[in-house]
Design a protein around this nucleic acid. Structure first.
Lengths: 361, 361
DNA sequence: TTGTATGCGTTATCAG
DNA sequence: CTGATAACGCATACAA
């Protein structure tokens, strides 16, 4: 093997054309005669040339074809969440036409080593739910002059933002429960801050995580006095543990649980089964997300279906727009209420006059 | 807003030093006097210079700090599998010290658009379980002269390979069951090829997917006549559906199911519960992977714990070695057998003489 | 349709 | 410790 890789100039020389002609053969930006193209391709073949060096090309064009996706947690934790997974899929779809790929970046880079917002050759960045380091990440990206989009976070007016109307959505589920006659309702929430230990949330406690707060507010719009129990994470096991705590005392047991995620809801259902309660006869449970919870059949959650893939695609579209010099608008998606078989008339309640579903607030 | 971003030369000029000195301040590759450093940093601050342009730097150094990870499926499908998720985490950890990040690449790029092995500025590539397009991907990477590592796949002798001794592992679980007196055993396998429809696998059918075949062979080493039922995917729901089929007829019902993944095993357990069978009294079930199956408590699967994170880290280490000019060896990991509470003495069998666990084969 | 010239922003090398 | 110089490999404006 030669000491050095062939460059486009080598190919051009071998083919007897100029470098620019050879370049054009590969980029296709300008018409080239069939003959010339064939000669160049043949020369490339002979020299084992596999196309323009992306590094050099990106310096020249100013585009690397890479969109950074910044997470605040470990990848494993992130992808455990089906919603994020689906969202990533949507995002990947949306940036593909751009000729771009997704670079996984961790917000909290332990040693300051590793690819980061500052050192990676990014065309754009997507920040996902980065509540904490958000400001820092933003300033980095801003001084680098890189277009940025935020999903589920607030980065100020000049940064396009893709999110959900969590409050309105959660309000719908709560209204649904109220119309079914429920009064003793508890909210099983996502963590209220990082490193949260599962337990009741005091009224005086501030809720640092936006999603958690917004959904709680939605529930409170309908049930102002509903207590909030926050889990440590969104998983069936966490939901199960919380459910046990919630259902432990028959005297104070709620007739409905508003869970802030489908996984938590699934856990509550398991806890109810354990406690010998029938869902939805003895206990109604609502979820949030609208994912397929593997293994939950035959239950079909009453839940809010969030357009996860759409969110990803919207973020991709926003990136595309900004890269194109246009500016991108923020988008707030709404969730679709879906009634499953995990919610029913409150025990002892009279049927509502106007049917079980009432999404008025 | 200047018309143009500041470059390192601008900073150098502003600071009254040479470009090379300014460069060194940022790279830290050579000692610089405290004074000079301060002047340069101050100048950078004034000009809003956020550090060297990664594109230009990568052209010069030949390193982009990007490791491509090639999947054969949609991201969503990939990350649904907890094992892959954990593996990615290990991989991310291992490449971070390299100053590198992970670029998600899809093997099967529909339109030929999108970042790809050919067009992305990669330092190295990791191919994951790419059975189909493997050869093609390899040749691309090879002519580009990019170091490559394969996880769960065979890319020939000169490509480092990280995988599992699936056959030996599965043999252990099978031996365990045999020592418990099981004789009517069925293998619930992963798909035998892409687009597989769930069902019994005829003896004449070729098993295209290596992992599936190797695990089946391990089971067959102990139970040569065990029939194989292949699911369409690795999930609880698929396991449930398969379990129903497997347990439908009391006359031919197996006393043990060797599932090729923990998720499938969890599904079989649900199917058993549905059928009024007690696990492990009436039916033993073994899994494969050793993940935490969310919501499976109080069951703890008897399973093979595979070192998923280690696999990722090993791949990262191999990449690091190759980037360093050393060559990387292939590694075959072994699984640890873990006895949970989902396997027990076969109905009507006498206790074994030598204790329940026997890994001889 | 093809060729010529130029610079993208950096960093390695080497001399001072 | 600092500075001058020379690539790195390519894509574009422009001329032919």
């Amino acid at each position: 093997m030669g000491a050095r890789r062939a460059t486009i100039s080598d190919v051009a020389r071998e083919a007897g054309v100029s470098p620019s002609t050879a370049s054009v053969v590969f980029s296709g930006k300008t018409p080239v005669s069939t003959q010339t193209r064939a000669r160049v391709l043949a020369a490339a073949e002979r020299l084992g040339y596999s196309g323009p060096d992306p590094r050099a090309a990106s310096l020249r064009t100013g585009r690397s074809g890479i969109v950074g996706v910044v997470f605040e947690e470990h990848l494993g934790d992130t992808f455990l969440d089906p919603v994020k997974t689906v969202m990533m899929d949507g995002l990947a779809d949306a940036v593909a036409p751009l000729g771009a790929g997704l670079l996984l970046l961790r917000d909290h880079d332990p040693a300051g080593v590793g690819a980061s917002l500052t050192t990676a050759p990014l065309d754009a960045a997507v920040l996902i739910g980065c509540s904490g380091m958000l400001r820092e990440s933003l300033s980095v990206v801003h001084t680098r002059g890189i277009p940025v989009v935020v999903i589920e976070g607030d980065a100020g007016a000049d940064v396009p933002r893709i999110d959900l109307d969590n409050r309105e959505a959660q309000r719908q589920a709560a209204s649904h429960l109220r119309s079914l006659g429920h009064e003793r309702v508890v909210v099983l929430s996502l963590p209220i801050r990082t490193d949260w230990v599962p337990g009741w949330v005091p009224e005086t406690a501030g809720i640092e995580i936006d999603v958690t707060r917004e959904r709680r507010d939605g529930a409170r719009d309908v049930f102002p006095a509903a207590p909030v129990y926050a889990a440590a994470a969104s998983s069936i096991d966490e939901g199960l543990a919380a459910g046990r705590a919630l259902l432990a005392d028959p005297a104070t047991r709620p007739t409905a649980v508003i869970a802030q995620s489908d996984l938590l809801a699934a856990g509550v259902i398991r806890a109810a089964e354990e406690a010998g309660l029938d869902v939805p006869r003895d206990l109604s449970v609502t979820g949030f997300d609208g994912i397929e919870v593997d293994g939950l059949a035959p239950y079909e959650l009453t839940t809010l279906v969030q357009p996860a893939a759409e969110k990803g695609r919207a973020a991709g579209a926003a990136v595309a727009a900004m890269l194109d010099g246009r500016d991108a608008a923020s988008i707030r998606f709404t969730c679709a209420f879906r009634e499953g078989n995990t919610s029913a008339l409150a025990p002892g309640a009279a049927p509502p006059a106007s049917g079980p579903v009432d999404s008025g607030g």
